[in-house]
Design a binder for these strands. Structure first.
Lengths: 108, 108
DNA sequence: TAGACACATGAACATACATTCATATGTAAT
DNA sequence: ATTACATATGAATGTATGTTCATGTGTCTA
Protein backbone atom coordinates (compact mmCIF):
# COMPACT_ATOMS: atom_id res chain seq x y z
CA UNK A 1 0.00 0.00 0.00
CA UNK A 2 1.57 3.27 -1.04
CA UNK A 3 1.35 6.60 0.74
CA UNK A 4 -1.51 7.80 -1.45
CA UNK A 5 -3.81 4.87 -0.76
CA UNK A 6 -2.97 5.05 2.93
CA UNK A 7 -4.10 8.64 3.03
CA UNK A 8 -7.20 7.59 1.16
CA UNK A 9 -7.98 4.90 3.72
CA UNK A 10 -7.41 7.29 6.62
CA UNK A 11 -9.68 9.80 4.95
CA UNK A 12 -12.32 7.13 4.58
CA UNK A 13 -12.12 6.16 8.23
CA UNK A 14 -12.32 9.79 9.30
CA UNK A 15 -15.29 10.23 7.01
CA UNK A 16 -17.15 7.26 8.46
CA UNK A 17 -16.52 8.57 11.95
CA UNK A 18 -17.68 12.04 11.07
CA UNK A 19 -20.86 10.67 9.54
CA UNK A 20 -21.54 8.53 12.58
CA UNK A 21 -21.03 11.50 14.87
CA UNK A 22 -23.33 13.56 12.70
CA UNK A 23 -26.00 10.89 12.81
CA UNK A 24 -25.65 10.52 16.56
CA UNK A 25 -25.87 14.27 17.15
CA UNK A 26 -28.93 14.45 14.90
CA UNK A 27 -30.62 11.61 16.75
CA UNK A 28 -29.82 13.02 20.18
CA UNK A 29 -31.17 16.42 19.21
CA UNK A 30 -34.37 14.76 18.12
CA UNK A 31 -34.67 12.97 21.46
CA UNK A 32 -33.48 15.77 23.72
CA UNK A 33 -36.80 17.07 24.94
CA UNK A 34 -38.91 16.08 27.91
CA UNK A 35 -42.13 15.92 25.93
CA UNK A 36 -40.64 13.87 23.12
CA UNK A 37 -38.97 11.46 25.52
CA UNK A 38 -42.28 11.08 27.30
CA UNK A 39 -44.02 10.29 24.02
CA UNK A 40 -41.42 7.67 23.21
CA UNK A 41 -41.64 6.16 26.67
CA UNK A 42 -45.39 5.76 26.27
CA UNK A 43 -45.13 4.41 22.76
CA UNK A 44 -42.51 1.87 23.76
CA UNK A 45 -45.05 0.44 26.18
CA UNK A 46 -47.99 0.23 23.78
CA UNK A 47 -47.97 -0.49 20.06
CA UNK A 48 -49.75 2.64 18.90
CA UNK A 49 -51.49 5.63 20.35
CA UNK A 50 -53.64 8.42 19.03
CA UNK A 51 -52.73 12.04 19.47
CA UNK A 52 -55.50 12.55 22.04
CA UNK A 53 -54.28 9.56 24.05
CA UNK A 54 -50.81 11.04 24.06
CA UNK A 55 -52.14 14.49 24.90
CA UNK A 56 -53.57 13.12 28.13
CA UNK A 57 -50.68 10.88 29.02
CA UNK A 58 -47.98 13.33 28.19
CA UNK A 59 -49.88 16.37 29.39
CA UNK A 60 -49.22 18.50 26.37
CA UNK A 61 -51.44 20.83 24.41
CA UNK A 62 -52.77 19.60 21.05
CA UNK A 63 -50.92 21.82 18.64
CA UNK A 64 -47.61 21.65 20.41
CA UNK A 65 -47.79 17.88 20.69
CA UNK A 66 -48.67 17.66 17.04
CA UNK A 67 -45.59 19.67 16.15
CA UNK A 68 -43.41 17.33 18.18
CA UNK A 69 -45.01 14.27 16.61
CA UNK A 70 -44.67 15.63 13.09
CA UNK A 71 -41.07 16.34 13.89
CA UNK A 72 -40.33 12.86 15.23
CA UNK A 73 -42.03 11.36 12.22
CA UNK A 74 -40.08 13.53 9.80
CA UNK A 75 -36.91 12.34 11.47
CA UNK A 76 -37.84 8.70 11.03
CA UNK A 77 -38.36 7.98 14.70
CA UNK A 78 -42.11 7.59 14.54
CA UNK A 79 -44.68 6.26 12.11
CA UNK A 80 -48.29 7.18 11.78
CA UNK A 81 -51.38 5.80 10.15
CA UNK A 82 -54.94 6.99 10.02
CA UNK A 83 -57.80 5.10 11.53
CA UNK A 84 -60.99 7.01 11.02
CA UNK A 85 -60.67 10.42 12.53
CA UNK A 86 -57.71 9.45 14.62
CA UNK A 87 -54.08 9.43 13.76
CA UNK A 88 -52.18 6.58 15.35
CA UNK A 89 -48.51 7.03 16.06
CA UNK A 90 -46.02 4.28 16.72
CA UNK A 91 -42.30 3.72 16.99
CA UNK A 92 -40.70 3.22 13.61
CA UNK A 93 -37.61 1.26 14.54
CA UNK A 94 -37.86 -0.88 17.66
CA UNK A 95 -34.11 -0.74 18.10
CA UNK A 96 -34.61 2.62 19.71
CA UNK A 97 -36.22 1.01 22.74
CA UNK A 98 -33.05 -0.50 24.22
CA UNK A 99 -31.36 2.81 23.54
CA UNK A 100 -34.03 4.63 25.53
CA UNK A 101 -33.68 2.08 28.30
CA UNK A 102 -29.98 2.67 28.31
CA UNK A 103 -30.54 6.42 28.62
CA UNK A 104 -33.10 6.17 31.40
CA UNK A 105 -30.96 3.64 33.16
CA UNK A 106 -28.04 6.07 33.15
CA UNK A 107 -30.31 8.78 34.60
CA UNK A 108 -30.95 6.92 37.83
CA UNK B 1 -54.61 2.56 51.86
CA UNK B 2 -57.18 5.29 51.51
CA UNK B 3 -57.86 7.40 48.48
CA UNK B 4 -55.66 10.21 49.69
CA UNK B 5 -52.53 8.13 50.11
CA UNK B 6 -53.19 6.45 46.77
CA UNK B 7 -53.23 9.82 45.10
CA UNK B 8 -50.08 10.67 46.98
CA UNK B 9 -48.34 7.53 45.70
CA UNK B 10 -49.46 8.17 42.15
CA UNK B 11 -48.21 11.73 42.44
CA UNK B 12 -44.89 10.42 43.67
CA UNK B 13 -44.56 8.01 40.78
CA UNK B 14 -45.45 10.71 38.30
CA UNK B 15 -42.96 13.00 39.97
CA UNK B 16 -40.16 10.43 39.75
CA UNK B 17 -40.94 9.88 36.11
CA UNK B 18 -41.01 13.57 35.39
CA UNK B 19 -37.68 14.05 37.11
CA UNK B 20 -36.15 11.17 35.21
CA UNK B 21 -37.41 12.59 31.93
CA UNK B 22 -36.03 15.98 32.87
CA UNK B 23 -32.65 14.50 33.69
CA UNK B 24 -32.60 12.50 30.47
CA UNK B 25 -33.53 15.52 28.36
CA UNK B 26 -30.85 17.57 30.11
CA UNK B 27 -28.23 14.90 29.49
CA UNK B 28 -29.19 14.42 25.86
CA UNK B 29 -29.05 18.16 25.22
CA UNK B 30 -25.57 18.20 26.69
CA UNK B 31 -24.48 15.36 24.39
CA UNK B 32 -26.32 16.41 21.24
CA UNK B 33 -23.50 18.05 19.36
CA UNK B 34 -20.99 16.63 16.94
CA UNK B 35 -18.04 18.33 18.58
CA UNK B 36 -19.01 17.29 22.09
CA UNK B 37 -19.65 13.72 21.02
CA UNK B 38 -16.28 13.69 19.35
CA UNK B 39 -14.62 14.92 22.53
CA UNK B 40 -16.33 12.21 24.54
CA UNK B 41 -15.40 9.56 22.03
CA UNK B 42 -11.75 10.54 22.28
CA UNK B 43 -11.83 10.78 26.05
CA UNK B 44 -13.43 7.38 26.38
CA UNK B 45 -10.42 5.94 24.59
CA UNK B 46 -7.73 7.67 26.66
CA UNK B 47 -7.81 8.58 30.32
CA UNK B 48 -7.17 12.31 29.96
CA UNK B 49 -6.36 14.78 27.26
CA UNK B 50 -5.27 18.39 27.15
CA UNK B 51 -7.23 21.02 25.30
CA UNK B 52 -4.59 21.24 22.57
CA UNK B 53 -4.65 17.48 22.09
CA UNK B 54 -8.41 17.66 21.69
CA UNK B 55 -8.17 20.65 19.38
CA UNK B 56 -6.16 18.57 16.95
CA UNK B 57 -8.14 15.40 17.27
CA UNK B 58 -11.53 17.01 17.20
CA UNK B 59 -10.61 19.69 14.71
CA UNK B 60 -12.09 22.57 16.60
CA UNK B 61 -10.86 26.08 17.25
CA UNK B 62 -9.44 26.83 20.70
CA UNK B 63 -12.05 29.15 22.10
CA UNK B 64 -15.02 27.25 20.81
CA UNK B 65 -13.67 23.96 22.11
CA UNK B 66 -12.99 25.57 25.44
CA UNK B 67 -16.61 26.71 25.63
CA UNK B 68 -17.80 23.18 24.91
CA UNK B 69 -15.44 21.72 27.50
CA UNK B 70 -16.43 24.23 30.14
CA UNK B 71 -20.01 23.40 29.40
CA UNK B 72 -19.53 19.65 29.67
CA UNK B 73 -17.67 20.14 32.91
CA UNK B 74 -20.37 22.40 34.34
CA UNK B 75 -22.89 19.70 33.53
CA UNK B 76 -20.90 17.07 35.38
CA UNK B 77 -19.92 15.09 32.33
CA UNK B 78 -16.25 15.98 32.36
CA UNK B 79 -13.57 16.66 34.95
CA UNK B 80 -10.46 18.69 34.61
CA UNK B 81 -7.21 19.17 36.45
CA UNK B 82 -4.23 21.34 35.85
CA UNK B 83 -0.82 19.95 35.04
CA UNK B 84 1.59 22.80 34.54
CA UNK B 85 0.33 24.95 31.73
CA UNK B 86 -2.00 22.33 30.46
CA UNK B 87 -5.52 21.58 31.49
CA UNK B 88 -6.33 17.90 31.36
CA UNK B 89 -9.89 16.84 30.77
CA UNK B 90 -11.36 13.45 31.51
CA UNK B 91 -14.69 11.70 31.75
CA UNK B 92 -16.27 12.21 35.14
CA UNK B 93 -18.52 9.17 35.33
CA UNK B 94 -17.40 6.13 33.38
CA UNK B 95 -20.96 4.89 33.19
CA UNK B 96 -21.43 7.23 30.29
CA UNK B 97 -19.17 5.10 28.12
CA UNK B 98 -21.60 2.20 27.62
CA UNK B 99 -24.29 4.78 26.97
CA UNK B 100 -22.18 6.34 24.22
CA UNK B 101 -21.50 2.89 22.81
CA UNK B 102 -25.21 2.23 22.81
CA UNK B 103 -25.83 5.47 20.92
CA UNK B 104 -23.11 4.90 18.33
CA UNK B 105 -24.23 1.34 17.94
CA UNK B 106 -27.75 2.49 17.15
CA UNK B 107 -26.37 4.90 14.54
CA UNK B 108 -24.95 2.18 12.35
C1' DT C 1 10.10 40.35 35.60
C1' DA C 2 9.12 39.98 30.62
C1' DG C 3 7.63 37.13 27.17
C1' DA C 4 5.58 32.95 25.52
C1' DC C 5 2.34 29.34 25.89
C1' DA C 6 -2.13 27.06 27.11
C1' DC C 7 -6.38 27.96 28.14
C1' DA C 8 -10.73 30.54 29.93
C1' DT C 9 -14.02 34.12 29.72
C1' DG C 10 -17.49 37.58 28.26
C1' DA C 11 -19.93 40.24 25.08
C1' DA C 12 -21.98 40.38 20.59
C1' DC C 13 -24.06 38.17 17.15
C1' DA C 14 -26.23 34.37 14.42
C1' DT C 15 -28.90 30.40 14.15
C1' DA C 16 -31.87 26.92 15.68
C1' DC C 17 -35.69 25.33 18.62
C1' DA C 18 -39.91 25.62 21.35
C1' DT C 19 -44.31 27.67 22.03
C1' DT C 20 -48.59 29.93 20.95
C1' DC C 21 -52.36 31.25 18.22
C1' DA C 22 -55.37 31.27 14.45
C1' DT C 23 -56.86 28.57 10.95
C1' DA C 24 -56.98 24.63 7.65
C1' DT C 25 -57.87 19.71 6.50
C1' DG C 26 -59.85 15.29 6.65
C1' DT C 27 -63.26 12.08 8.48
C1' DA C 28 -67.77 10.82 10.60
C1' DA C 29 -72.41 11.49 12.02
C1' DT C 30 -76.89 13.83 11.30
C1' DA D 1 -74.83 19.69 3.19
C1' DT D 2 -73.84 20.97 7.77
C1' DT D 3 -71.76 20.31 11.95
C1' DA D 4 -68.56 18.32 15.13
C1' DC D 5 -64.40 16.04 16.12
C1' DA D 6 -59.37 14.89 15.67
C1' DT D 7 -55.47 16.52 14.03
C1' DA D 8 -52.11 19.34 11.10
C1' DT D 9 -50.09 23.51 9.56
C1' DG D 10 -47.99 28.17 9.22
C1' DA D 11 -46.75 32.50 10.82
C1' DA D 12 -45.22 35.08 14.70
C1' DT D 13 -42.80 35.21 18.73
C1' DG D 14 -39.78 33.99 22.50
C1' DT D 15 -35.92 31.54 24.25
C1' DA D 16 -31.89 28.80 24.13
C1' DT D 17 -27.62 27.39 21.76
C1' DG D 18 -23.58 27.83 18.96
C1' DT D 19 -19.97 30.73 17.14
C1' DT D 20 -16.63 34.41 16.86
C1' DC D 21 -13.60 37.78 18.50
C1' DA D 22 -11.02 40.32 21.67
C1' DT D 23 -9.01 39.97 25.87
C1' DG D 24 -7.95 37.98 30.53
C1' DT D 25 -5.55 34.61 33.62
C1' DG D 26 -2.30 31.28 35.18
C1' DT D 27 2.11 28.95 34.49
C1' DC D 28 6.60 28.23 32.67
C1' DT D 29 11.20 29.82 30.87
C1' DA D 30 14.84 32.91 30.13
Amino acid sequence: MNVCSCVYVIDKIMEVDRIKLEKAAYLLKALAHETRLCVLKHLSQTKEKSVSDLMEEVGCEQSLLSHHLTDLRAKGILNSRREGQRNLYSINNEEIIPLLECIFNYCK
